[in-house]
Simulated scan of single mutants.
Amino acid sequence: EMPAFDMVRASVNLIVAGILISIGTSLKLPLSTTYVTFMVAMGTSLADRAWGRESAVYRVAGVINVIGGWFLTAFVAFIAAATAAYLISLGGILMVAILLMVVIGLMLRSSIKFQKNTKEKRKQRHIERAELITINGVIEETSDHISQVIRRVNKLYSNVVDDLSRHDLNKLKKNDKQISKLNDEVNELKDEAFYFIKSLDDSSVEASRFYLLVLGYLQDISQSISYISKASFKHVNNNHKNLKKGQVKDLKVISVELADILTDIEHIFESREFDSLNSVLSKKQHLFSHVSHSVEKQINRIRTEESSAKNSTLYFGNLLETKDLINAIMSLVELYQEFHLNMKKAKIDI
Rank of each mutant, 00 (worst) to 15 (best):
R122M: 12
W51K: 01
K113F: 12
E273P: 02
R303D: 12
L332Y: 03
H293C: 00
I329F: 11
M343L: 14
N278C: 01
A50Q: 10
R59S: 01
S180N: 06
V256A: 12
A81Q: 15
L277V: 03
R152P: 02
A207R: 08
M107S: 14
D202G: 02
I228W: 01
D260L: 08
L332S: 06
M101V: 13
M95V: 07
L108D: 07
L218W: 15
E257F: 06
R301G: 00
H340Y: 11
L218F: 13
D260G: 08
F5G: 13
A74D: 06
N65R: 15
I127Y: 04
A77E: 10
L182T: 04
L341T: 04
G137Q: 07
H167L: 11
E257H: 07
Q148Y: 08
K177F: 02
N136L: 14
L20Y: 03
T25M: 08
A84R: 15
L325D: 05
E296T: 10
Y227M: 08
S204F: 10
A231I: 05
I329E: 04
M7T: 11
I179Q: 03
T313S: 14
K116P: 02
H267K: 14
E120Q: 11
A346E: 15
E338N: 01
W51C: 00
F210V: 04
G43H: 00
K121M: 09
S292P: 07
H293K: 09
A50D: 10
M343T: 01
R129S: 11
Q285M: 13
N318G: 06
E273D: 14
N117W: 06
R59I: 03
S255D: 06
S143P: 09
M2T: 10
N242L: 10
V153G: 10
T304W: 02
L287N: 06
L325T: 02
I228L: 09
R53L: 12
V186D: 06
K249A: 09
M330V: 13
I15A: 10
M39I: 03
K234V: 01
K121N: 07
N238W: 06
H293N: 04
D163G: 03
N278S: 07
